[in-house]
Amino acid sequence: MTIDAPAPPAEPSPPRPRKKGKLIGFALLLAFLIIYVGSLFGFHLLADSSAPLKADLNSTDDTVVLVRLDELKTVANRLTVKVLVIPQDSMFDKRLEVLKTDTAVRMDPANDLGDLLYPAGKSPAQVATTIEAHGNPNNWPFDSYSTDTLSADVLVGSGDDRKYIPARVEVAGALDGWDVSVRRVGEASQDSDKGDSVVISLHRAKGPLIFDLGICLVLFALPTLAVTVAILMLTGKRAFLPPFVTWFAAVLFAIIPIRNFLPGSPPTGAWIDQALVLWALIALVVAMIIFFVTWYRRTD
Rank of each mutant, 00 (worst) to 15 (best):
A188W: 00
S144K: 15
V245L: 13
I200C: 05
G195A: 05
V185A: 12
A174C: 02
A152F: 05
D212V: 09
S146E: 15
K237W: 11
V199H: 12
D193H: 06
C216A: 15
W247C: 10
F240R: 04
H203A: 04
D153R: 04
L252R: 06
L209I: 10
F248P: 03
S197W: 03
V198R: 01
V229F: 06
D212Q: 07
F220G: 15
V245M: 13
I165L: 12
K237H: 12
S197G: 08
D161W: 02
S144D: 15
D179S: 14
A230F: 04
K237E: 15
S151G: 15
K194H: 07
K237V: 04
N139C: 09
R184S: 11
V156K: 00
V227F: 07
G186I: 07
T149N: 09
A250N: 11
L150H: 10
L222Q: 02
N138E: 14
Y164L: 13
R204W: 06
L222I: 14
D196T: 01
I215Q: 09
K194D: 11
S181E: 15
D148N: 11
Y145V: 03
L175M: 10
S181I: 03
R183H: 15
W178H: 13
L202G: 01
V182S: 03
S201K: 10
T149D: 10
H203E: 12
C216T: 12
S151N: 09
P137K: 02
E187H: 01
S151T: 14
D161S: 11
P137I: 02
D212I: 01
S192F: 02
G236R: 08
I231V: 12
D143Q: 14
L202T: 00
A221M: 10
